[in-house]
Each structure stands twice: as structure tokens, then as C-alpha cells.
Amino acid sequence: MTTEDAPKSRMARDVELLWGLESPPRRRGPKPRLSREVVVRAALDVADAEGIEAVSMQRVSKELGYTTMSLYRHVDSKEDLLVLMIDTAMEGDPPGPRADGDWRAGLEEWCHSVLELYRHRPWVVRLSFSGPPGGPNGLRWMESGLRELVGSGLDVGEAVQMLLLLSSALRESVRLETDMADAARTTGNTPVEVERDYSRSLRRVVTEEEFPTIALMLHEQVLEPRPTAQATEGTGEPTHELDFGIRRVLDGIESYVRTSGTIGGA
């Protein structure tokens, strides 16, 4: 079996799917009312309104008023539909190059833009990714983040590793944030009340002898809500907590570049 004949990996197939490299040639005649883009947009509407769990080929076909088999002429499977949905959900303009060349400010802006994107469509963070971005939208966001990291003085391989770390942290933070909010709603509580109840429950079982660091955390009321006016870096709303972590990662990059003598680390 030659390389050309070998089965394609999922990531390679996703690239072909997302860029339309395997699309059949367009037939002559009137443009059909049903298309891949129409199917994906309808699936996005279902996910936005009802959650990703509600998305199925049957549900989307019902939304469009077509038979389920009609959808399969444009999208081969639900798996392909989800891949197309993820990239379409990332439409929008990522931050462009900064005029002042401040890579730290640029990367913080990139992180906040990614958070905004995920919070706008939190169902995205519940999906499994088969690999790095492969579609036009995902690659534009990847390019934007890598540009700032390379601007710090990291080589491109190091920049890829750091982008993976930041992307994973942002995605997992929003997933946890969303899960906690959903759990709070099911009990009729607010996320603040959930955290307060959790802290109070821990105080009943945590001892300084067995869990000294957790006991310190409870003593300093780390989990207790604090007034916004009194919030400091690393405390308060989820965004502030993420800002603290993001800035410490950027501190680490800056220190690494400076000590390794990489050009651009000044």
C-alpha cells in the first residue's frame, strides 16, 4: 500500500472537510436551497438554543423541514457535523497585530477574546477535539496567538507548546465555570451560594492535622465571595482569577526568554 492509498488520519480528514477539499463539483442549474452551510447554521441554532446534547441529524433535519437522509447528501455524519460546527462557532476576528509590539498585552487580549468566544457559545467546550485547529476560523485564532508568543522571543516550537497550555486552560476554565453554573441552577442557587455552601461543608470535615493547606485556605476564606471593590489580582470574579494565572504564565515566558538569552526577550 502506497502513502497515497493509506487511510487518512482524522486530523487530515478534518482539514479536507473544513476547507471543502473533498466537495463534489457544483452542478449546473439553480443553487439548491439546502447546502452544507445551511445545515451547519441550523445545527448551531439548535446548540445555541438547547445545548449540544440536542444536536442530531434528525433534530437538525426537523429544524430545516427536510428528511434526515437529505442532510446526508451534504454532511456524511454527525461527527463531521460537529467538526464543522466547532470551526463555524469560532468565526469572528481574533486580535490583530499591536502597533506597539507589546506581546504581553497582545496575548492577554487574545486570551480574553477566546474566553468571550467560549462564553458566547459554552457548548463548544463540551465537545471533544480530535486535534489542533484545521479550519479557516480555527487557524486564524491559532495564527493570532502564535504571533504574540513568537514575538516574546520563543521559537515557534516553544510557542506552539505554550499556546496549547493556554488554550487548554481557557477551555477547561470555561467548562468548569459552565458546569458549576448549571449545577447551581438545578438546585435554585447562585454560583456564589454554591461556593459558600461548599466552603462551609468543608469546614466540618477538614482538620489542620490531615489537610493543613486546605485548612489554611478555609481560614483565609479563599472560597468566600468578596466585594468587587476589594478584589485584588487573583481574587473575585472568574475573569480576575484567570487573569492572575495568565499573567503568571506570561511572567514565566518572559523569564525563560530572558535567562535563555533569546532575542526579543528584553
Rank of each mutant, 00 (worst) to 15 (best):
T3M: 13
D5P: 05
D5S: 15
K8I: 14
K8Y: 09
S9V: 06
S9M: 04
R10N: 11
R10G: 03
M11A: 15
R13H: 14
R13F: 09
D14Y: 11
D14A: 09
D14T: 08
V15I: 11
V15E: 15
V15G: 12
V15Y: 15
L18N: 04
L18V: 03
W19C: 02
G20M: 10
G20C: 11
G20Y: 07
L21E: 11
L21R: 15
E22M: 10
S23V: 13
S23F: 05
S23M: 12
R28F: 06
G29Q: 02
G29V: 09
P30Q: 12
P30I: 08
K31Q: 14
P32D: 06
R33I: 00
L34K: 05
S35H: 03
S35E: 10
E37M: 07
E37A: 11
E37I: 07
V38S: 07
V39H: 00
V40T: 03
R41W: 09
R41E: 13
R41I: 03
A42D: 02
A43D: 04
L44C: 13
D45Y: 03
D45T: 08
V46D: 06
V46C: 07
A47C: 08
D48S: 12
A49W: 02
A49C: 12
E50G: 04
I52A: 10
I52K: 05
V55M: 04
V55H: 02
S56D: 06
M57A: 09
R59V: 12
S61L: 04
K62H: 13
K62N: 14
T67K: 15
T68Y: 04
S70V: 03
S70T: 10
L71N: 02
L71R: 01
Y72G: 05
R73A: 07
R73M: 12
S77C: 08
S77G: 07
S77V: 03
K78D: 02
E79C: 00
D80R: 01
D80E: 15
L81H: 05
L82N: 00
L82M: 13
L82F: 14
L82R: 00
V83T: 11
V83S: 05
L84D: 01
M85A: 08
D87S: 06
T88F: 09
T88Q: 09
E91D: 15
G92A: 08
P94N: 10
P94T: 10
P95W: 06
